[in-house]
């Protein structure tokens, strides 16, 4: 698994539950306590062990841990850069959803070694979009639910999200946009940094 993914899990646990909890989970899963390097690639097993340990230590089901991770990724100030990169994906939340199948290619443009599951978009009409997540590892769909739920708020849209379920190698999420301009959302300027 790419170091960016492992580091995301590490920072989520550390920033949400505190350093001692992270160290406990790291020790229990034989992960580097000092932290992962974002630019290294690690064996997949350490990611699985880390998520197993997180379930036990945090006493939360894996789906909740993964969804909270998604929420963290687009809302915590420590990972603001990622929120900004995602917001380049579209001017409105619906735009964003319609181009979400570009996400793995966008990620690869920045980090060629980062392999994300393929995503597909089905426009189900009436402001309803279904998103498919196709990869050999189930779980990314829950992270995506957390990301999308928080991004909807970020765009100021009122949306209803549902994890429809998973098959052998795919997960489906449905998104109903009830109001595209529910609030003003968080501002996004093209020139945040110069």
């Amino acid at each position: 698994m790419h170091g960016l993914v492992n580091r995301a899990i590490q920072c989520f646990i550390r920033d949400t539950y505190g350093t001692p909890i992270w160290e406990e989970i790291a020790r229990a899963s034989d992960a580097p306590v000092a932290g992962f390097e974002a630019m290294f690639v690690y064996e997949d097993a350490v990611t699985d062990r880390m998520l197993d340990a997180a379930e036990t230590v945090l006493q939360r089901p894996r789906e909740t841990v993964l969804e909270d991770l998604g929420t963290y990724l687009v809302s915590h100030p420590n990972v603001e850069a990622l929120r900004r990169l995602l917001r380049f994906g579209g001017e409105t939340f619906l735009d964003f959803l319609h181009t979400i199948d570009d996400l793995p290619r966008r990620a690869a443009l920045a980090v060629p070694e980062l392999v994300l599951p393929e995503l597909s978009v089905v426009d189900a009409g009436c402001n309803r979009v279904r998103i498919g997540c196709h990869g050999d590892r189930v779980g990314f769909g829950y992270v995506l639910v957390g990301i999308l739920r928080t991004l909807a708020d970020d765009y100021g849209a009122l949306a209803l999200l549902e994890y429809e379920g998973d098959g052998a190698s795919e997960e489906w999420i449905s998104v109903d946009i009830l109001n595209a301009e529910h609030t003003r959302g968080r501002p996004f300027q093209l020139a945040a940094r110069i």
């Binding site: 974002a38 630019m39 990169l85 443009l109 093209l190």
Partner: peptide, 21 residues
């Protein structure tokens, strides 16, 4: 333009990671 801004920003983030490493 938007894609270019995205690439510039993404590369800046990644470059910062490399620099830290």
């Amino acid at each position: 333009v938007i894609e270019m801004l995205y690439v510039v920003e993404a590369k800046t983030v990644i470059l910062d990671e490399w620099r830290g490493l």
